[in-house]
Design a binder for these strands. Structure first.
Lengths: 216, 216
DNA sequence: GCCCTGCCTTGATCAGTGTCAATGCGCCGG
DNA sequence: CCGGCGCATTGACACTGATCAAGGCAGGGC
């Protein structure tokens, strides 16, 4: 990637995220395409405009862990070390705003505002990751899948929810195998807590029951 | 976040942590004593002066997850939400510097410097938490314990290492039971990778072999 | 010095999840 | 419409780590 275009004047934003405005360039990625690589220099940040993204990390023997899934308006690549510990890949077709961090210092006071915005997002990322630790460390397979589905379902406010990822991605996020994920999905359905319409669309049938599986 | 630094002329301390200097008050805590509680307002930050601290979170049914362990000069309580998701407890006797976040505003340019310091620590915390996710999601019991011991041993640079926590704390950090931790410790010892002198002191006997168990 | 207490270790068994293999289902191209 | 391909599901079985239970060990108080 070459030099990023700069738009010098920034208007005060309504939504904090808007502060990033049109800085940087927009790029589109096809399903599975890599946005950045594990161990790559971390001098860009990325904002999801449209679509969904996963961050993944591979152990040397091929075991895979997914760090998180990201949707419209989420920022990715905040890890703030010199290199990325995870790679980022498009789940489906998606559009991403790419911003060179070093460009931000050219924005003066707006730069400080943006800096604070990025910090706030980093803190949010930390909280999400801490939830993930809880999920991985102390929850059963069934609870993991229930938590995951409930999380996704919340984004659809009672409508039929659509999973942007396949079973393997769910498994690698939850620290399970694809077969176990599949069995738990079947079981939750048998118990009447959710109903699947095809393997990527579902609705919550018993929110209370599902919430019971998701201890806090 | 150093790439975003906007005021390079601020006198850079040798140890960045020194910027916190003597702000706030020092407190001492006895073994097991709570430094702050889960769900408590997060308006303080804490710096470990001496001793070790664990952060823990309880599920409503009593399952416990340890978020991380902290040692001298580490900052705790950076979660940056309105309330703490984890509680913090002293592992042994320890001394803690307690700083009210809102007080930092009064320090002007120094305040900004401190703000940056805190955010750099938050980013470091995020990276550590991401490592923890990898550990919990995709490593076997034996690898978890090996990783943990190697981490501790690094702080002692070849000397005999001392564990500041008991087996239950190790288990709750690693997402295992106390019995499994104990068995893995015994196994690593049988395999000649480590040697224990009492249950809290050990030395690494075969660093290469141990490192082989700790895939990256 | 001795006992008591709390933590750690070890053993036996069990449950939950992983592994391996077969089958099913849906989507897409021909 | 059909066949093939990729992903999901299901089943049988193995194995890791949890559970339950019984000692062992070490440190502190008396």
């Amino acid at each position: 990637m070459t030099a990023l275009s700069l738009s010098p004047s920034l208007a005060a934003p309504q939504q904090p995220i808007d502060a990033l405005g049109q800085i940087g360039v927009r790029m589109t990625f096809s399903p599975g395409e890599e946005i950045y690589a594990q161990d790559e220099d971390a001098d860009m940040i990325y904002r999801v405009i449209r679509g969904a993204v996963r961050t993944t990390r591979l152990l040397s023997d091929g075991r895979r862990q997914i760090g998180d899934f990201y949707y419209a308006d989420d920022l990715i690549g905040l890890e703030a070390g010199p290199v990325h510990r995870f790679s980022a890949e498009a789940l489906g077709c998606c559009e991403i705003q790419v911003i060179r961090k070093s460009a931000l210092r050219l924005y003066g006071d707006d730069g400080l505002k943006i800096e604070r915005l990025i910090w706030a997002e980093t803190a949010r990322e930390l909280r999400r990751t801490q939830e993930h630790v809880m999920l991985l460390g102390r929850k059963s397979a069934c609870e993991k899948v229930a938590s995951f589905l409930l999380d996704i379902a919340r984004r659809f406010r009672g409508e039929v929810a659509e999973l942007p990822m396949g079973r393997q991605d769910m498994a690698d996020y939850l620290g399970l195998t694809i077969e176990t994920v599949s069995r738990m999905v079947t079981q939750l359905q048998t118990d009447g807590l959710v109903r699947f319409l095809g393997c990527r669309r579902f609705e919550v049938r018993n929110a209370t029951g599902l919430a019971c599986l998701v201890e806090t």
